[in-house]
């Protein structure tokens, strides 16, 4: 498992005792750690049976549902935070899941591999689809079907009515201050429904 640099940043935003929904929760590591360190209450959502099993092993509440079919199991405003960590790029309708996040949560947190990272740009410039630490698949077997840049995501937020509260771009765990859409490989956004 590659280290998840976004987890620490996400954790720093979540207050004690918050109600959290973690979409695409994987083995439940983030939720388990948030529960242990911040006493959060919440649920993970995961489609893969083996990851569901692993999440049960981590002692978190996990609901096996396909995110593509929406979040109909969850009520409006049911959560303080809805997290979508490195899953957006693998969804068929990335726009619809953002809208659903805004419906069920007070705030949303999305992290995704930044396609605008310079190595990715360079690779395209040299005529090949990028394969990198943040995008480790070949074009023909990648689950990542909707890649976007930090700027693309900003535009999508505007489109779906999300107000960006915080926006960081990381590279190997460090926050990139200069030319983040070029030098950062991981976008981390925090947003809420535009009032």
């Amino acid at each position: 498992m590659t280290p998840r640099f976004d987890y620490d940043l996400i954790a720093s935003w979540i207050p004690e005792g918050a109600r959290v929904l973690d979409l695409g929760c994987g083995d439940g590591e983030l939720l388990a750690s948030l529960a242990a360190t911040r006493g959060v209450k919440g649920y993970g959502v995961e489609i893969d049976p083996d990851r569901v099993l692993a999440a049960v092993g981590h002692g978190v509440n996990v609901i096996q549902v396909d995110l593509e079919s929406g979040l109909s199991a969850f009520e409006d405003d049911a959560f303080d935070f809805v997290i979508l960590s490195q899953t957006l790029q693998a969804m068929r309708r990335s726009d619809l899941i953002l809208a659903e996040m805004l419906r069920v949560g007070r705030e949303g947190i999305v992290t995704f591999p930044n396609f605008g990272y310079w190595r990715h740009r360079l690779s395209i410039l040299l005529g090949r689809m990028p394969v990198s630490k943040s995008l480790p698949y070949e074009w023909y077997d990648t689950p990542n079907i909707h890649l976007c840049t930090v700027k693309d995501f900003e535009a999508l937020c505007t489109k779906v009515g999300a107000e960006i509260l915080d926006e960081r771009v990381l590279h190997e765990g460090q926050i990139v201050q200069t030319l983040p859409n070029l030098l950062g490989s991981l976008g981390v956004f925090r947003f809420r429904r535009r009032g």
């Binding site: 509440n61 996990v62 096996q64 549902v65 969850f74």
Partner: peptide, 21 residues
């Protein structure tokens, strides 16, 4: 089963749901 889960989640209960193939 999802109806059961939805009601439990609405009430903030601890619930895990698995759909077994």
């Amino acid at each position: 089963s999802r109806e059961i889960v939805k009601a439990l989640v609405k009430g903030g209960k601890d619930v895990t749901y698995a759909e077994i193939d």
